[in-house]
Amino acid sequence: DHWHVHIDGERIRLDGASEEFIRTLEELIRRGTDARELKEIIKEYLR
């Protein structure tokens, strides 16, 4: 599956992301997590 998110107007691909990770991201977004912080979390995950 190819997922991607838009954060700060930037399109970030989440290739190979699990549904669990996507749900976690959605939860963080709902909580109002800062965009820079979200991008860091995604970069760490994709390593």
Score class of each variant (00 low, 15 high):
residue 1 D to K: 10
residue 1 D to H: 13
residue 1 D to Q: 11
residue 1 D to S: 11
residue 1 D to F: 11
residue 2 H to Y: 13
residue 2 H to R: 10
residue 2 H to P: 12
residue 2 H to Q: 14
residue 2 H to K: 09
residue 3 W to P: 11
residue 3 W to A: 09
residue 3 W to R: 11
residue 3 W to C: 07
residue 3 W to S: 08
residue 3 W to G: 06
residue 3 W to M: 10
residue 3 W to T: 08
residue 4 H to S: 12
residue 4 H to F: 14
residue 4 H to G: 06
residue 4 H to V: 15
residue 4 H to D: 11
residue 4 H to W: 15
residue 5 V to P: 02
residue 5 V to E: 01
residue 5 V to K: 03
residue 5 V to F: 07
residue 5 V to Y: 05
residue 5 V to C: 06
residue 5 V to S: 03
residue 5 V to A: 07
residue 6 H to W: 15
residue 6 H to Y: 12
residue 6 H to P: 01
residue 6 H to F: 11
residue 6 H to E: 15
residue 6 H to K: 10
residue 7 I to E: 01
residue 7 I to N: 01
residue 7 I to G: 01
residue 7 I to T: 02
residue 7 I to S: 02
residue 7 I to K: 01
residue 7 I to C: 02
residue 7 I to F: 05
residue 8 D to I: 02
residue 8 D to K: 03
residue 8 D to A: 07
residue 8 D to G: 07
residue 8 D to M: 05
residue 9 G to F: 04
residue 9 G to E: 06
residue 9 G to S: 05
residue 9 G to A: 04
residue 9 G to C: 05
residue 10 E to N: 05
residue 10 E to R: 02
residue 10 E to H: 07
residue 10 E to Y: 06
residue 10 E to A: 02
residue 10 E to W: 04
residue 10 E to K: 05
residue 10 E to C: 08
residue 10 E to P: 00
residue 10 E to G: 02
residue 11 R to F: 15
residue 11 R to N: 15
residue 12 I to F: 11
residue 12 I to R: 01
residue 12 I to S: 01
residue 12 I to L: 06
residue 13 R to N: 15
residue 13 R to L: 12
residue 13 R to M: 13
residue 13 R to S: 15
residue 13 R to Y: 15
residue 13 R to G: 15
residue 14 L to A: 04
residue 14 L to S: 01
residue 14 L to P: 00
residue 14 L to N: 00
residue 14 L to R: 00
residue 14 L to D: 00
residue 14 L to W: 02
residue 14 L to Q: 01
residue 15 D to R: 07
residue 15 D to M: 07
residue 15 D to V: 13
residue 15 D to A: 06
residue 15 D to G: 05
residue 16 G to E: 06
residue 16 G to C: 06
residue 16 G to V: 05
residue 16 G to H: 11
residue 16 G to T: 06
residue 16 G to K: 06
residue 17 A to N: 04
residue 17 A to M: 08
residue 17 A to R: 02
residue 17 A to T: 05
residue 17 A to C: 12
residue 17 A to E: 02
residue 18 S to G: 09
residue 18 S to K: 05
residue 18 S to F: 03
residue 18 S to T: 12
residue 18 S to H: 09
residue 18 S to A: 08
residue 18 S to C: 01
residue 19 E to S: 11
residue 19 E to L: 14
residue 19 E to W: 10
residue 20 E to K: 08
residue 20 E to M: 09
residue 20 E to P: 05
residue 20 E to H: 10
residue 21 F to S: 01
residue 21 F to A: 02
residue 21 F to Q: 02
residue 21 F to T: 02
residue 21 F to R: 00
residue 21 F to P: 00
residue 22 I to K: 10
residue 22 I to A: 04
residue 22 I to F: 06
residue 22 I to V: 10
residue 22 I to T: 04
residue 22 I to L: 08
residue 22 I to W: 04
residue 23 R to D: 06
residue 23 R to E: 09
residue 23 R to Q: 13
residue 23 R to P: 00
residue 23 R to F: 05
residue 23 R to W: 08
residue 23 R to L: 08
residue 23 R to K: 13
residue 24 T to M: 11
residue 24 T to E: 12
residue 24 T to R: 13
residue 24 T to G: 09
residue 24 T to A: 12
residue 24 T to L: 13
residue 24 T to I: 10
residue 25 L to K: 00
residue 25 L to R: 00
residue 25 L to N: 00
residue 25 L to Y: 02
residue 25 L to I: 12
residue 25 L to C: 02
residue 26 E to K: 12
residue 26 E to P: 00
residue 26 E to C: 09
residue 26 E to L: 10
residue 26 E to I: 11
residue 26 E to A: 09
residue 26 E to H: 11
residue 26 E to W: 10
residue 27 E to H: 09
residue 27 E to K: 07
residue 27 E to Q: 09
residue 27 E to V: 08
residue 27 E to T: 08
residue 27 E to S: 09
residue 28 L to W: 05
residue 28 L to V: 06
residue 28 L to T: 03
residue 28 L to Q: 04
residue 28 L to R: 04
residue 29 I to A: 03
residue 29 I to H: 02
residue 29 I to S: 03
residue 29 I to K: 02
residue 29 I to L: 10
residue 29 I to F: 04
residue 29 I to N: 01
residue 30 R to E: 11
residue 30 R to A: 14
residue 30 R to I: 11
residue 31 R to Y: 08
residue 31 R to N: 13
residue 31 R to A: 13
residue 31 R to C: 05
residue 31 R to W: 08
residue 32 G to W: 03
residue 32 G to K: 01
residue 32 G to M: 06
residue 32 G to S: 04
residue 32 G to A: 04
residue 32 G to D: 04
residue 33 T to C: 05
residue 33 T to P: 02
residue 33 T to M: 12
residue 33 T to A: 11
residue 33 T to H: 07
residue 34 D to C: 06
residue 34 D to E: 11
residue 34 D to P: 14
residue 34 D to M: 06
residue 34 D to Q: 09
residue 34 D to S: 14
residue 34 D to H: 10
residue 34 D to G: 13
residue 35 A to F: 08
residue 35 A to L: 10
residue 35 A to H: 09
residue 35 A to Q: 07
residue 35 A to N: 06
residue 36 R to F: 13
residue 36 R to I: 11
residue 36 R to K: 14
residue 36 R to Q: 14
residue 36 R to A: 14
residue 36 R to G: 13
residue 37 E to F: 12
residue 37 E to A: 12
residue 37 E to N: 05
residue 37 E to C: 05
residue 37 E to R: 09
residue 38 L to N: 00
residue 38 L to R: 00
residue 38 L to Y: 01
residue 38 L to S: 00
residue 38 L to Q: 00
residue 38 L to D: 00
residue 38 L to C: 01
residue 38 L to G: 00
residue 39 K to P: 01
residue 39 K to F: 12
residue 39 K to D: 06
residue 39 K to Y: 13
residue 39 K to E: 08
residue 39 K to R: 13
residue 39 K to I: 12
residue 40 E to I: 11
residue 40 E to M: 10
residue 40 E to Q: 13
residue 40 E to S: 10
residue 40 E to N: 11
residue 40 E to Y: 06
residue 40 E to K: 12
residue 41 I to Q: 05
residue 41 I to G: 01
residue 41 I to D: 00
residue 41 I to E: 02
residue 41 I to H: 07
residue 41 I to V: 12
residue 41 I to M: 13
residue 42 I to L: 06
residue 42 I to H: 00
residue 42 I to P: 00
residue 42 I to V: 09
residue 42 I to E: 00
residue 42 I to F: 02
residue 42 I to K: 00
residue 42 I to Q: 00
residue 42 I to D: 00
residue 43 K to A: 15
residue 43 K to R: 11
residue 43 K to W: 13
residue 43 K to G: 11
residue 43 K to V: 13
residue 43 K to F: 13
residue 43 K to Y: 13
residue 43 K to E: 15
residue 43 K to D: 14
residue 44 E to D: 11
residue 44 E to S: 06
residue 44 E to H: 09
residue 44 E to G: 06
residue 44 E to F: 06
residue 44 E to V: 07
residue 45 Y to C: 01
residue 45 Y to G: 03
residue 45 Y to N: 03
residue 45 Y to E: 04
residue 45 Y to I: 03
residue 46 L to Q: 07
residue 46 L to T: 06
residue 46 L to K: 06
residue 46 L to Y: 14
residue 46 L to F: 14
residue 46 L to R: 03
residue 46 L to A: 03
residue 46 L to S: 04
residue 46 L to V: 11
residue 46 L to N: 06
residue 47 R to T: 14
residue 47 R to C: 11
residue 47 R to F: 13
residue 47 R to L: 07
residue 47 R to N: 14
residue 47 R to I: 15
